[in-house]
Amino acid sequence: MDLQTIKERIAVVQSKREYLLDLLEQPNLGILKVDVNQALEELDELIDEFKRTIPETENN
């Protein structure tokens, strides 16, 4: 897999973050709120790790 493909896939994953934030705000989520919160934390960690691995100068 080339770097451009990885960047495109990361961009798709980052776009899903907003959906998770919206889902987290739902009042009827119940115990699933814990899972959504965990997904957000893991997503943020993955994005941070990507940014550390592929510095911004290479992201362009």
Rank of each mutant, 00 (worst) to 15 (best):
Asn28Gly: 15
Tyr19Gly: 06
Lys7Arg: 05
Asp22Asn: 13
Asp48Leu: 05
Leu3Asp: 06
Glu25Leu: 05
Asp44Ala: 01
Glu58Asn: 12
Leu32His: 10
Leu3Pro: 15
Ser15Thr: 04
Leu23Cys: 12
Leu3Val: 10
Lys7Leu: 08
Met1Asn: 03
Glu56Thr: 10
Asp44Glu: 02
Lys33Ser: 11
Asn59Gly: 13
Val34Arg: 01
Glu42Tyr: 13
Glu45Arg: 09
Glu25Pro: 15
Asn60Arg: 14
Asp2Ala: 06
Leu29Ile: 13
Pro27Glu: 12
Leu21Ser: 09
Val36Thr: 08
Val12Thr: 06
Leu23Pro: 10
Arg52Ile: 03
Ile47His: 07
Glu56Val: 13
Ile31Pro: 10
Asp44Asn: 10
Glu56Leu: 09
Thr57Met: 04
Tyr19Met: 00
Ile10Arg: 04
Lys51His: 00
Lys51Asp: 03
Asn59Ala: 14
Phe50Gly: 12
Ile31Arg: 11
Arg52Asp: 11
Pro55His: 04
Glu42Asn: 10
Gln4Glu: 00
Arg52Thr: 04
Ile31Asp: 09
Ala39His: 03
Leu21His: 11
Glu25Ile: 14
Val34Gly: 00
Thr53Cys: 10
Val13Thr: 02
Gln38His: 09
Asp2Val: 12
Ser15Glu: 01
Ser15Lys: 03
Lys16Cys: 03
Asp48Tyr: 11
Glu49Ala: 07
Ala39Phe: 02
Leu20Gly: 11
Glu8His: 12
Glu41Phe: 07
Ile10Gly: 06
Glu45Asp: 09
Lys7Asn: 09
Asp35Met: 09
Arg52Asn: 14
Leu46Cys: 05
Glu18Lys: 05
Thr5Leu: 03
Glu45Tyr: 11
Glu58Phe: 15
Leu40Pro: 15
Glu18Pro: 14
Ile10His: 01
Leu3Ser: 04
Tyr19Thr: 08
Leu43Thr: 04
Phe50Glu: 05
Gln14Phe: 00
Pro55Gly: 05
